[in-house]
């Protein structure tokens, strides 16, 4: 059984433009692009002119969301192949930013987890970030034993990509690491596992 209802589990909202902000930074992946595009009716042209977009297409590449993001008329619109490769640009934007900058995260949990972690390094509290979850529920999991990170986990139980222990994926989320906690489940009787199910699709 998964442990549910734990407070550390992030709660995501719906993106809305912050018109007071003097600068907007949007970091999105996959179907998250749709959440960004959905702000269009509420956001004046001037809003997009103050906005930087960083987008990771991932599995959604064939849908051509990036072209639609480019058509928004943003100050800049950048595409990166992976979340990790997008982070230097995100850091560069945050590093140069001043107060009055609004960060938006849209898409998968790994993207939002990484976005929040990086934002924290620049002194942005997670409450001030606007988020919207779209697409896969796949989780980024940290093994509590070896601290290694296993990406894109969709099952309740997963072998740690680093130490190989069978991990139960908990709802406990670390903002610092940007990952859910994975705890060894068969320590007493190795190999005896509950049913492995795909739960984070």
């Amino acid at each position: 059984m998964l442990v549910s209802g734990i407070k550390s589990r992030p709660v995501y909202g719906t993106l809305a433009p912050n018109e007071q902000a003097r600068l907007n930074i949007v970091f999105a992946d996959g179907e998250g692009a749709l959440a960004v595009l959905a702000m269009k009716p509420a956001a004046p042209t001037a809003f997009w002119a103050r906005t930087h977009v960083i987008y990771v297409a991932g599995g959604s590449a064939p849908q051509g969301h990036f072209a639609k993001l480019q058509a928004l008329g943003t100050h800049s619109c950048h595409e990166a192949p992976t979340i990790a490769s997008a982070l230097p640009r995100l850091k560069a934007l945050l590093g140069a930013a001043r107060m009055g900058t609004q960060l938006y995260l849209a898409g998968t949990e790994p993207l939002m987890g990484e976005g929040m972690r990086v934002a924290g390094e620049y002194g942005i509290r997670h409450q001030s970030i606007r988020t919207e979850h779209r697409g896969s529920l796949a989780r980024r999991v940290q093994c509590v034993h070896c601290k290694g990170i296993t990406e894109s986990v969709t099952t309740n139980i997963v072998p740690c990509a680093h130490c190989g222990l069978h991990l139960l994926v908990r709802d406990h989320y670390s903002r610092r690491v940007g990952a859910f906690q994975g705890v060894n489940i068969d320590a007493e009787a190795p190999g005896q596992l509950p049913k492995v199910e795909e739960v984070f699709k």
Binding site: R22, A97, R98, M99, G100, T101, Y122, G123, I124
Partner: peptide, 10 residues
């Protein structure tokens, strides 16, 4: 004064 404050200012 406020316009020029770096990100992460309280």
């Amino acid at each position: 004064l406020l316009v020029m404050q770096p990100l992460g200012t309280h």
